[in-house]
Amino acid sequence: MDSLSRVMIKKGMWTKCKKCSNIIYTKELKENQSVCPKCSNHLRLSAKDRIDQIIDDGTFEEMHAEIETKNIFKFEGYDEKLKENKEKNSINEAVIIGCGNIHGIKVAIGVMDSNFMMGSMGTVVGEKIARLVEFSSKEKLPMVLFCTSGGARMQEGILSLMQMAKISFTLARFKEQGGLYISVLTDPTTGGVSASFAMQGDIIISEPNALIGFAGKKVIQNTIKEELPNDLQRAEFLFKKGLIDKIVNRKEMKKFLFDILDINKGIYYEPRK
């Protein structure tokens, strides 16, 4: 027997920050809203944890949770991957939609989840977000959408790309009716999601240092044959260029959203000329 006794550490008890390599007690990290206490890095959140942070206790009502993805093109291994992700994350798809209160103000809310196939946009993700927009319009509610995605879902081919147009169309109609759409970009927001609804908000917010862009940095660099800034696709760079309205710390996000909603009371849903 070894002179040093082995200490059994429960899986998931500790979390390593990918930015500063700080080892954090997972319970304390969750109490700190998954923000590293050493370097303030915003670690990625599940959709359920995000809803718990943003929506008032006991007010969230999920919608269309029963919609499930079908392997339309019979893509090899896709059914198994979907099953694995459902079991691992206890959700049916890469977005949760519903309604709830933010400090007493009722909103329609959608939250994408990067833990489910990297938040990739397939037909069900597109359908659920489109239905959320239509629900917001029908109920005359402001809409908040937390975006995170690696882009379109390759297993669904052209159908995944069609979601960009579908959601963009519903958003255009929603805005014509005076609807207020707040887009919140989180790490990462890339590909077809960033090229469509993520950047179509009336107000676009981002968490600090979030990766935001369409094509990968290396792809751009190899295409234009020029050296690119190190922070090219980070939230702070986009903010300087006017593509983002505000960078908001996660701990301040709920209060910031409430302030926007409170200020705009009685303004949204006035038809725009």
Rank of each mutant, 00 (worst) to 15 (best):
N264V: 00
M13I: 03
A215H: 08
E93W: 03
F256D: 07
D49P: 08
I51L: 15
S168T: 15
L232G: 00
R272I: 14
R50K: 11
E252T: 12
I244A: 08
E252L: 09
M63T: 03
F60A: 00
R131I: 06
M199R: 02
N230S: 14
S136K: 02
I23N: 02
N92Q: 04
R250S: 05
L159H: 11
V193F: 12
I105L: 02
F73W: 02
Q155N: 11
K225N: 15
G242I: 08
E87D: 05
T170W: 15
I96S: 08
T123F: 10
L145C: 15
S120D: 13
L4R: 09
K225I: 04
G178F: 13
D231A: 03
L185F: 08
A165Q: 14
S46N: 10
I54A: 00
F146P: 04
L4A: 12
I263Q: 12
G122E: 03
I54F: 04
L4H: 13
C17L: 05
E66H: 14
K83H: 06
I244Q: 05
I205T: 07
V95C: 12
K225L: 11
K254M: 04
V184N: 04
P188W: 01
P142W: 00
E31K: 07
G178E: 06
G242F: 14
D56V: 01
L4K: 14
S194Y: 12
I212F: 01
A198E: 11
Y269S: 03
H64Y: 15
K11T: 13
I267D: 02
C36H: 02
Q53K: 10
Q53H: 12
P142A: 02
E66R: 05
S114L: 02
R50G: 13
I247F: 06
I212H: 06
M121S: 03
D202L: 06
G191A: 09
A65I: 01
K251A: 05
D79Y: 08
R131P: 08
A215N: 12
E127W: 04
E270N: 15
K48R: 15
T26E: 06
C36D: 14
V124H: 04
D231Y: 05
M143F: 13
A172D: 08
S120L: 13
I267K: 15
L45S: 11
S149C: 03
I105W: 01
L238G: 05
H64Q: 12
M63L: 09
K217E: 15
T190H: 08
R153T: 10
V248E: 00
K27L: 08
C17R: 00
K166S: 13
A235W: 00
D202T: 00
I267G: 06
E87G: 01
A215F: 04
V124S: 03
S5L: 08
G119W: 00
I54H: 01
L132Q: 01
Q200G: 07
G122F: 08
L180V: 00
M164T: 10
E227F: 00
G151Q: 11
R6F: 07
K88D: 09
I260F: 10
G192I: 09
F60Q: 01
V7K: 14
E61L: 06
I204T: 03
M118A: 06
C36S: 03
G178Y: 12
F239T: 00
E61Y: 14
E68V: 15
D262M: 11
T148F: 06
Q33G: 02
Y268F: 11
S196A: 15
F73R: 12
F169G: 10
D262W: 13
N115S: 04
V7H: 12
L232A: 00
